[in-house]
Simulated assay, not measured.
Amino acid sequence: MTEATERFFESLPTRAPAVLGGLAVGTLQIDLGTDHQTEHWLVRMRPGAVQSSRERGPADAIWYSSSALFDRLVSGEAQALAAVLRNESTFSGDVVLFLAFRRFFPDPPGTRDPREVAREAVGRRA
């Protein structure tokens, strides 16, 4: 596992109040595979709070990803939902947990808020 992934999981509790709304309540197990080894993370979510640990356990949902893909997600180079739809990673269980958790990943480099772009376009016309 890379240092970026470690830092990502360590940052979850402090970022949770800004990221998680009221729908995400439950436990997501994240399995990260490299070669023939799988590392496990258990992420417990509730509105505005997250606890993460490096363990397996009872979970409401399980998400499997390669470690390499997860590193790309953490850096904003890939998108979680697109990876699942392309079958680059798999997910089972409570989909609300997955949809909430993906909000922790950064936007792709160069992404801008569409409202900001619209304001600039209006400003140029004025």
Rank of each mutant, 00 (worst) to 15 (best):
P17V: 02
A80W: 11
V84R: 05
L85P: 00
Q51W: 09
F98S: 03
T111W: 04
T27E: 02
R124E: 12
A18D: 05
H40Y: 09
F8V: 10
P13H: 08
N87M: 14
A4I: 06
Q37C: 08
E10Q: 14
P17C: 04
R119D: 13
R54D: 13
G57K: 08
A59M: 08
R124Q: 10
R54A: 15
G110W: 07
L42S: 11
D71M: 07
Y64I: 09
A100C: 05
V50S: 03
R102M: 13
V96I: 13
R86P: 03
P114W: 10
F105N: 00
A126R: 13
F8W: 14
R72H: 10
D71I: 08
G93I: 10
R15W: 00
F70G: 02
L20R: 00
L12I: 05
R15F: 00
V96Q: 09
R103W: 04
E39T: 15
A83H: 08
E77Q: 15
P47Q: 02
F101P: 00
E88Y: 08
E39M: 14
L20I: 09
A49L: 03
A126P: 07
E39L: 14
F9P: 09
D107Q: 13
R115G: 15
S75H: 11
V43S: 01
F98K: 00
A80E: 12
A4R: 13
P17L: 02
V95G: 02
G22I: 06
R115H: 07
A4N: 12
L99K: 01
A68K: 06
Q51F: 06
H40R: 11
A61M: 09
L85H: 07
G26F: 12
P106Q: 01
A83Q: 09
R86V: 02
N87C: 11
G33Y: 05
R124W: 09
R102S: 13
E116H: 07
